[in-house]
């Protein structure tokens, strides 16, 4: 399992982020990207409260996530695998069901 898929699966869930400078941010994960840039939304009235914030991925030290999020990722990756399997079964149906595909005019006609 990739760390970024876990991060993706925790969208909408509360998390705690510690930055390299030691500051911590608590909030719901709104969005994230492949650079681990994240945006958080306010989570209750504790501490100094920002409505929303955007954190650059490179400034993150670690993310603390709820324990059950990892189970959702497992389900998701299983679902993806099934989808891939279905897609593989469909492979090779696109072209070449008749012979003589894309070969121009029928050679027998030429005099």
């Amino acid at each position: 399992m990739l760390p970024l898929s876990l991060l993706n699966a925790s969208k909408g869930r509360p998390m705690q982020v510690e930055l390299k400078n030691g500051e911590t941010y608590n909030g719901h994960l709104v969005n994230c990207d492949p650079w681990m840039n994240i945006s958080l939304q306010k989570d209750g009235e504790t501490f100094y409260s920002l409505e929303e914030c955007y954190i650059r991925g490179s400034s993150i030290k670690y993310l603390r996530i709820q324990d059950d999020v990892i189970d959702n990722v497992k389900e998701e990756s299983q679902r993806n695998k099934n989808q891939m399997r279905n897609r593989n079964n469909m492979r090779g149906r696109g072209r070449g069901r008749n012979s003589n595909r894309g070969r121009g005019a029928n050679n027998n006609i030429r005099s």
Binding site: P3, L6, G57, K61, Y62, R64, I65, D67, V69
Partner: peptide, 11 residues
């Protein structure tokens, strides 16, 4: 006890 963590490689 810290639970589930993603630790960034930089760190």
């Amino acid at each position: 006890e810290l639970g589930l963590h993603i630790i960034r490689g930089d760190n």
